[in-house]
Simulated scan of single mutants.
Amino acid sequence: MRLSGIIAAILLALSWGDLARAAGEPVDLELVLAVDVSGSVDAVEARLQREGYVAAFRDPEVVRAIRSGMVGRIAVLYFEWASQHESRVVLDWQVVADAGSATAFADRLASEPVLRGRRTSIAAAIDFAVPHFGRRYEGTRRVIDLSGDGPNNDGAPVVPARDRAVAAGIVINGLPIINERQFTWGLPNLKELDLYYRDCVIGGPGAFYIVAEDFESFAAAVKRKLVLEIAGRMPTVQHAQLYPERPMFDAEGRVDCLAGEKLLEIYRRRTEPN
């Protein structure tokens, strides 16, 4: 082969390698797990959340769901979030393709310390998650799995952030944790949180939410949600609590997506000196 032909072959091989790297490693799903560690989540509850995800990735049913995909592997990133300036990647992208890699992910997650924060910025959590997609992997689907026990009350409103993510081709699924106790510093919680997630947080084709009735039932909810998410399915019945008084609903019966901000303002008016 002439020198020019050898050079051309080398350049062609390099160009194909660049294209492969640009496209990213194929996976069935790019999944970002976004976990609330704001002030409403105490140390015990934060640990219960973490243990729920650890248990899920050690579960054979979750592994079977991963293996059932056309590619047979997913990429997972796990981060914890609180206020608009408190988001931290706990585990960067890792491919999970079998029991060994799923257990490795779970073991690494179990060994990491839990971040703690104060307020709740779902909007900032969504905005933090979006740029992480497409960096190393090319998923057939891209999903943010967002769990939390309260509405957005810090930083920008949640709806524009949700809509930007959906416009970028990302689905947001929700795991609202129903927790009717008053927050530790006196701020009232939103008892209609499941419906708030339905109307204000989730979005994109096939988006859904699964309710955790409390922190103790979080692990079971996580497992169910992951199996559905990985398989690209939706739950048969969408759970919704029904309450006799709904002060945070609008005339059309939908949750006010500024409910968290308004609850915070009510709290401030009650606690600030006259």
Rank of each mutant, 00 (worst) to 15 (best):
V222F: 00
E229W: 00
L3Q: 14
R141P: 06
Q182V: 14
F208Q: 02
D107E: 12
P160T: 02
D154N: 14
A251H: 09
R118D: 12
E112H: 06
L33E: 03
L115R: 04
C257Y: 03
A102Y: 03
A259P: 07
S83Q: 14
A251K: 10
L175D: 11
L228P: 10
V32P: 00
I170K: 06
I144F: 01
L91I: 13
A106H: 05
A156Q: 12
K223R: 13
A65I: 13
L226C: 00
R224T: 13
Q94N: 02
L19T: 14
Y197R: 10
S101N: 07
E213K: 09
E25T: 15
F128G: 06
T140S: 14
I210E: 09
L263I: 11
E229N: 08
V222S: 00
M1D: 15
L195V: 10
Y209A: 07
V95N: 07
P235G: 03
A110C: 05
K262D: 04
L195H: 10
L228K: 06
R118A: 05
E229Q: 11
G139C: 04
E216F: 08
R50D: 08
D36K: 11
R162W: 02
A56R: 04
D154Q: 08
F79D: 02
G260D: 09
D59H: 10
L226F: 01
D194N: 12
W185K: 10
A259H: 02
S4N: 15
P60M: 04
A99K: 10
V62A: 05
L226R: 01
R73Q: 15
A75P: 11
D18E: 14
I7Y: 04
L146T: 07
D256I: 00
V95Q: 10
A165W: 06
R119I: 06
V32K: 01
E180A: 13
P151R: 15
L228I: 04
Q94T: 09
A161P: 09
E216D: 10
S111A: 14
P60C: 08
Y209M: 10
R142A: 04
L195P: 01
F128H: 11
L91C: 08
D59W: 01
V35W: 06
A231L: 09
D36L: 08
I10G: 07
R50H: 09
A207F: 02
Y209I: 00
V95I: 13
A110K: 05
R2Y: 09
G260K: 12
M234I: 02
V54P: 14
G134W: 07
Q182N: 11
G186M: 09
Q238G: 07
Y197F: 15
L226T: 00
R50Q: 15
L109V: 08
